[in-house]
Nucleic acid binder design. Sequence first.
DNA 1: TAGATTGTTAATCGATTAACAATC
DNA 2: TAGATTGTTAATCGATTAACAATC
Lengths: 213, 213
Amino acid sequence: MLLKASTKVTRSKFSAKAIERLTLYHCILCQALLHGEDFISSAQIASLLRIDDSQVRKDLALCQAGGKAKIGYPVKTLKIAIEYALGFSRRKEVFIIGAGNLGFALAQYDDFPNYGIDVLALFDNNPDKIGQKIKKKEVFSTDELPNAIKRSNVKTVILTVPADHAQEVADKLVTLGIAYIWNFTPCVLKVPDAVTVHYENLMSGFLQLRTCD
Amino acid sequence: MLLKASTKVTRSKFSAKAIERLTLYHCILCQALLHGEDFISSAQIASLLRIDDSQVRKDLALCQAGGKAKIGYPVKTLKIAIEYALGFSRRKEVFIIGAGNLGFALAQYDDFPNYGIDVLALFDNNPDKIGQKIKKKEVFSTDELPNAIKRSNVKTVILTVPADHAQEVADKLVTLGIAYIWNFTPCVLKVPDAVTVHYENLMSGFLQLRTCD
DNA sequence: TAGATTGTTAATCGATTAACAATC
DNA sequence: TAGATTGTTAATCGATTAACAATC
């Protein structure tokens, strides 16, 4: 009937599961590169993740990875191919809404730049937070948000406000033209069809780790 | 051939996808409860998440949710049923390894207690961090880890160390008897079969939000 | 060459959607 | 009662795994 919010708009050739695997392949390639390895086989990658090796080959074929029979995939080239396919090299500008602990942690998260995520600024309505700077990113009053969005043309936000303000803030973001909400709050947001929400569901991650005990 | 690391050990009746949905249903129920609603239908839940309503009914049937034809599911009862099914009420003790920004943010994350996650302490080898306290959780030297694990019988850790130390730290955790690693580093970890790793893959979350632009 | 590994097709498996009888 | 909604079975769809010819 209807598609999930987070997969509704752009139908890329990569499924959510494939994206998840590809980012992990990328991690493996980074490490292999550090160890000075030139080639890697689908079986090596598969065994690290405990998945099927033909799964790996299928995913990599989508990236036009240039594997060679008998020797495997060239680490350096493959890494770049994945970066290109997933758009790590493209710059993606975002705002962080909510300068609490998690907001600050994500603003400082060293791996975002490697993936092309560029946090331009944070927004909060706590006067104590406003004006603070973290890694050259400043915290602004939420009153500045309309102007900041207009000037920058940012369409994506990271939402890290307290749960009891999530919907109210989301409503405001929608009226300001935000189209993508990366939602770190434990709240389901009611938004128009044109707006995409991705639920970064921490608890679900934990439960997948261990269901019992 | 082989199953994924994170699904290898405990084969519960809930798939990873089902767990993800159930935690979101739970969020919806919390909000419905706040609004004083007594009953909710599968169609209402489905429309908020833009999924199929029979999917919702199927998931809820697994929780023995006690829906009634014509009126729907009782919000309060259903919320408790999900909490029971997913084990939110059971107390789950964990250590955080790596008292950086993300480690601190997770130590203070207000929603963990609601889900039964109890962070007992943090560990770091930076002398400046050791002794700091955050929400009654203290940062200890990693030298204390063997004793702490022995005394507490903790089997699960949240791994938030810098990427270039992830494998080395993981190796140590394995020798100390840790069985579950909730991995927030962008690194694939080489661990024995008996150890489960769940990759909390932030970048994959972002990419699922928007593949283009 | 011989053997290992890719790329890809076919087979299997699981998850989602559709349909509908039961029921409140 | 009549109509709406559940619970569940059957149908569809997509993702994973197996198999194997091509190839380096």
